[in-house]
Amino acid sequence: MMQSKAVVTTENASKYLQQLCKHFAHKVSVDFDTSRGKVGFPFGDCTMSADEAALTIECTAKTDEELARAQNVIDDHLTRFAWREKPEISWQA
C-alpha cells in the first residue's frame, strides 16, 4: 500500500476540510465533521484532519499511479477552494 501526507498551513483548515468533503460527497463515499474527514475515491482513500493551524491530508492507494491521482484530485480542488491563500501543498511519502 502506497501512502503520502501533506500538511497545509492555514487558519481555515476546518472550512476547507468541510468544503472538500461536501464537494466529493456528490460522487463518492465521504464521512466528516468539523475536524476530521475521510473520502473514499475508487483509486484510494484520503483522510483529513483540521486544527487551528493546519489541514493535514493523508492518502493511501494500491499503486503509485493511483496515489498520484488521489494527490492530484486533492491538490486541484484545494487550490481552487483556497485560491485567496494560494496554499502550498507538499506531499511526503
Results as ranks from 00 to 15, higher is better:
residue 5 K to R: 14
residue 9 T to R: 11
residue 10 T to E: 10
residue 11 E to I: 04
residue 13 A to Y: 03
residue 13 A to N: 02
residue 15 K to H: 15
residue 15 K to P: 02
residue 15 K to V: 09
residue 18 Q to C: 15
residue 18 Q to M: 15
residue 19 Q to C: 06
residue 19 Q to E: 14
residue 20 L to F: 00
residue 22 K to T: 10
residue 22 K to V: 10
residue 23 H to K: 09
residue 25 A to F: 02
residue 25 A to E: 14
residue 27 K to Y: 05
residue 27 K to F: 03
residue 28 V to G: 05
residue 28 V to R: 08
residue 29 S to A: 15
residue 29 S to C: 10
residue 31 D to F: 10
residue 37 G to H: 04
residue 40 G to H: 10
residue 41 F to K: 05
residue 41 F to L: 11
residue 42 P to L: 15
residue 42 P to E: 14
residue 43 F to A: 08
residue 43 F to T: 10
residue 46 C to G: 04
residue 49 S to P: 03
residue 50 A to G: 07
residue 55 L to T: 06
residue 56 T to K: 06
residue 56 T to N: 09
residue 58 E to V: 15
residue 59 C to W: 04
residue 59 C to F: 09
residue 60 T to V: 13
residue 61 A to P: 03
residue 62 K to D: 15
residue 63 T to C: 11
residue 64 D to W: 00
residue 67 L to F: 07
residue 67 L to M: 12
residue 68 A to Q: 13
residue 68 A to E: 13
residue 68 A to I: 05
residue 69 R to Q: 14
residue 69 R to I: 01
residue 72 N to P: 05
residue 73 V to K: 06
residue 73 V to N: 07
residue 74 I to N: 01
residue 74 I to T: 04
residue 77 H to R: 06
residue 79 T to Q: 13
residue 83 W to T: 08
residue 84 R to Y: 00
residue 84 R to M: 08
residue 86 K to M: 08
residue 87 P to W: 06
residue 91 W to N: 11
residue 91 W to H: 10
residue 91 W to G: 05
residue 92 Q to T: 09
residue 92 Q to S: 13
residue 93 A to F: 02
